[in-house]
């Protein structure tokens, strides 16, 4: 059930699942040093993550509500405030990213923003029309050379350590989402064997986790 409601956010179906935020809060109370969480309130209308990820840090920040964990009391000169933790709520999606582990407010904000980008890429799906689908370049670039839809002008395969991998991963997730988690269907569309696509998915932790979360919610076995 938890996985089900979690995935609803990906679908941009408004749902209320306070449990997710509660879990995050509980974890924070137990002193884990950094946390990413998201809540599903305020799920948005039409925007996919690609639109958000194209924004500059400043523009993205403008879409966020920033708060610190302890905002009660007069603050300022009154407090020796080591809790320079930052919590960003991305208003269009309701996704929350936070950072507490750093020694300055400024750096925590930068870390929270970087985390928000990852979460947006992982959690907010762009819808795909399978009938007219043609894979974007960034997706082709992360596919192994043996893919039959890959053309020579794609260059060598980009691996998880390359910063461009994230964009390709995003496109791949959009597609796997559109075929409801079926690796064999997605593999066909990408001119790959099912095994080759599985290996690609398993090559990156966050990709693997996102795909498996979807598969579990659809009653499919997780990839191992």
């Amino acid at each position: 059930m938890a996985a089900q409601s979690l995935w609803r956010l990906f679908l941009r179906v408004p749902s209320s699942s306070p449990s997710l935020t509660a879990v995050a809060t509980a974890r924070r109370k137990f002193g884990m040093s950094c946390r990413m969480s998201f809540s599903s309130e305020n799920s948005s209308s039409g925007s996919g993550s690609r639109e958000f990820l194209g924004l500059s840090d400043e523009q993205l920040m403008k879409q966020c509500e920033m708060s610190t964990f302890k905002s009660s009391g007069p603050g300022g000169q009154h407090r020796n405030k080591r809790e320079s933790a930052v919590r960003l709520k991305h208003l269009p999606t309701g996704i929350i990213a936070q950072a507490v582990e750093d020694r300055s407010q400024h750096k925590n904000r930068a870390s929270a923003l970087a985390r928000l980008r990852t979460l947006l890429a992982l959690k907010v799906r762009n819808s795909i029309d399978l009938d007219t689908y043609s894979p974007p370049l960034e997706l082709l670039q992360i596919l192994p050379a043996k893919s039959t839809i890959r053309t020579s002008d794609c260059g060598p395969q980009i691996g998880p350590n390359n910063p461009k991998f994230a964009l390709g991963m995003l496109a791949l997730l959009d597609l796997i989402f559109a075929v409801e988690g079926s690796i064999s269907d997605a593999a066909k569309l990408m001119g790959l064997s099912t095994g080759a696509l599985s290996r690609l998915v398993l090559s990156d932790d966050s990709l693997r986790m996102a795909v498996n979360e979807l598969r579990t919610s659809k009653g499919l076995k997780p990839l191992k």
């Binding site: 920033m66 708060s67 610190t68 905002s71 007069p74 603050g75 300022g76 930052v86 407010q105």
Partner: peptide, 8 residues
Amino acid sequence: PDFAGIQR
């Protein structure tokens, strides 16, 4: 305001 919403 400051980041905690207090008029600062």
